[in-house]
């Protein structure tokens, strides 16, 4: 299936979880938050939340700003 992760189109295995999507970007998930289709997925639900085709996944962290 195809999903968007941080704006990049990715072909991934069926049933990929949010946790796996995060791990595809970073080893350390401290200070990281995830939204799928503009809804926050809390950290405790990462392992159990499966992505679906065409999902838009945003993985954010804090950077210098303001």
């Amino acid at each position: 299936m195809n999903v968007m992760i941080n704006g990049a189109a990715r072909e991934v295995a069926e049933g990929m979880t949010v946790a796996q999507a995060v791990r595809s970007l970073t080893e350390s998930a401290t200070g990281v938050a995830v939204a799928v289709n503009d809804e926050v997925v809390t950290r405790s639900a990462w392992e159990t939340t499966a992505l679906r085709d065409s999902d838009r996944v945003e993985v954010l962290t804090a950077v210098q700003g303001g």
Partner: peptide
């Protein structure tokens, strides 16, 4: 102190946090 929220950059070194 303020920080901004942005897409995670896998290549970023160090963190303001």
């Amino acid at each position: 102190t303020t920080v901004a929220m942005r897409r995670l950059d896998p290549h970023a070194r160090g963190s303001v946090l």
